Measured scan of single mutants.
Amino acid sequence: DLSALRVEEVQNVINAMQKILECPICLELIKEPVSTKCDHIFCKFCMLKLLNQKKGPSQCPLCKNDITKRSLQESTRFSQLVEELLKIICAFQLDTGLEYANSYNFAKKENNSPEHLKDEVSIIQSMGYRNRAKRLLQSEPENPSLQETSLSVQLSNLGTVRTLRTKQRIQPQRTSVYIELGSDSSEDTVNKATYCSVGDQELLQITPQGTRDEISLDSAKKAACEFSETDVTNTEHHQPSNNDLNTTEKRAAERHPEKYQGSSVSNLHVEPCGTNTHASSLQHENSSLLLTKDRMNVEKAEF
């Protein structure tokens, strides 16, 4: 173990290094160091905050020279020094078990990766560091076993998940096959086929009936047209017969005018059967003409 005197000496050296690497504005270890034209180094955030307070150039807090945003430059070497100082402080805390008085939040800088452990060898070769390295080497064999167990647990979990997924996939297939086998029997399929065939026959029977009705309507229309044509021909046949009657009536009127007047009046009210309204109107006109002729003949006879 380190003596108290040596611990104090190391602590004083760390404090001196820390004062050199402090920012003059925030009085902390410089984060993202930036250098000016006057070779003074500050935190990048502190300098941008200072420049944004005034429009135009501002003055350096140490030498009062003008500073602009374009004049600022990043210093990589200074950032490396800060990183190495942080590593020294971490090693000091691990070796002594004491917390550094002016320690900052170094938890963000710590890294437990194997590459980081290899890099620590180049920091300080001390008894405390050696003991700590031995402890780490002793704890390393235990870690692979834990990793193997965790991997086995994960693989077993994956296997159970896969088996569950396969079961879920197989179950719908089985149910679907069961439904297909038990849903419709052979008799049901035959009945469905016969039902479809009967429906098709009914459709075939319905369509000819409609065509037959249309044919019957067409035949009825044709018969009505033929009947009207026969009526017209009958009226045409009746007209010459009426003319013959008129000639006979004229002759009778010349011989017996008194008797014919009474008979002509009675004939006005008689309509021949089986004739249309057109034929009756023609008869009325003929009878009126005959009456006028008879009157003329009677007057001539009187004179």
Rank of each mutant, 00 (worst) to 15 (best):
S3V: 10
R6P: 06
E8T: 08
E9D: 04
V10Q: 13
Q11V: 12
A16F: 14
I20D: 12
E22A: 04
C23L: 15
P24E: 02
I25W: 01
I30T: 10
I30M: 08
I30V: 07
E32T: 09
P33A: 02
P33L: 14
H40R: 11
L50R: 04
N52F: 11
N52V: 14
K54C: 01
K55G: 03
K55T: 03
K55W: 00
S58L: 08
C60P: 15
C63W: 12
C63I: 15
N65R: 02
D66I: 06
T68A: 08
T68E: 14
R70Y: 03
R70F: 13
E74M: 08
T76P: 07
S79P: 12
Q80K: 08
L81S: 14
E83D: 04
K87N: 04
C90W: 05
Q93F: 07
Q93R: 10
D119N: 05
D119L: 09
V121W: 01
I123K: 03
I123Y: 07
Q125Y: 06
S126F: 10
M127V: 13
Y129S: 05
Y129I: 13
R130S: 10
K134M: 05
K134Y: 02
R135P: 09
S139Q: 07
S139F: 04
P141K: 06
N143A: 06
N143D: 09
P144D: 02
S145G: 05
S150T: 03
L151A: 11
S152M: 01
Q154S: 04
Q154C: 00
V161K: 15
T163W: 11
T163I: 00
L164I: 02
T166I: 07
S186Y: 14
D188E: 11
A193V: 00
Y195M: 01
G199C: 01
L204A: 09
Q205C: 00
Q205P: 03
Q209Y: 01
R212Y: 02
D218H: 08
D218S: 07
A220Q: 05
K222H: 08
K222T: 01
K222L: 01
A223V: 04
C225V: 13
F227L: 10
T233M: 15
N234H: 12
N234V: 05
S241I: 03
N242V: 05
L245T: 09
T247A: 03
T248C: 15
E249H: 14
A252W: 02
A253D: 08
R255V: 05
E258W: 07
Y260R: 11
S263C: 15
V265T: 10
L268G: 09
H269P: 12
H269S: 03
C273N: 07
T275R: 08
A279V: 08
S281Y: 11
N286S: 04
K293S: 09
D294P: 13
R295P: 05
N297T: 02
N297L: 05
A301G: 02
